[in-house]
Amino acid sequence: MIDLIETIFDTTIRAGTPILFGTLGAIICERSGVINLGVEGLMLIGALAGFAVTSMTGSFTAGVLAAIFFTMIAGMLHALITVYLKGNQIVSGLALAMLGVGVSALFGRSFVGKGLDGLSRIEIPLLSKIPIFGAMFRQDILVYLSVILVVLIALFFSRTRWGLYLRTVGENPGAADTSGIPVTRYRFWAVALGAGISGIGGAYMSLAYTPFWVENMTAGRGWIAVSLVIFSMWSAPRALFGAYLFGGINAAQLQLQAHGTSVSPYLLTMLPYLFTIGVLIWSTRRLEKGASNEPASLGLPYDREDRK
């Protein structure tokens, strides 16, 4: 029984981690006032770049760095359109999602069917021996990185100058501008950096979670990440909670399949999406009740000379 719970807990973390990266990236982006609906595309690009470079060089580090690099480039495209050219953020995000699906499929052709030895796990002495929760401490480096990132991002926003400025840019770019904060530069780099972090989520998919490459392997996780941003109220620690909640649903679903329930697997795979919809409704209602952390200028391009 303990074994089963540990397995579920382990899967929870592993299934939640790509979503966590995706959500963290989107949080940084949205905190600056830019919506990024392209996370799905970014994660696919990250997944392919990570897989391709790792299988060519044999180095996971190179793979992850490549994932960050290419998703940042893609993110900069979104940033260029939305921040500098004031294009519609929703359409640009969709374009990014499409581009990611297409580009990763195009360049992934030669990698289909190849496998990798997934990222190895690192056991943390003592802690990993704790029953059930020990699973948390028998993970690979990217899982640890994701948790460290949660802490770093939370500290960044609450304790640092740049964090304060970035929050201001997302809340009221006019106020930021008149205080001498370069709005467009902050937004551009927030979008790019956020994209890079979302990209790691993709790389985690193809390097650790299911270490091979197939077209469209993220299967909607990018969209779930975007929804979880609202659930997390733009806060990194809550994103961790949301992502693991999702991971838990996924783990439970996989266990049910493995233990041969009579329920069709096609119905079970719908569960995470249903769950996300429920979460989105619930968290939007909370937002409406005034507990709003939503960046006030989210989705609005900033043009200094627009007259009110």
Partner: peptide
């Protein structure tokens, strides 16, 4: 400015820190 350049969701302190 006539339309204040304040961040309504920030605390008074955070608003002043911007300056």
């Amino acid at each position: 400015h006539q339309h204040f350049m304040l961040v309504p969701n920030h605390s008074v302190l955070d608003n002043i820190l911007l300056a």
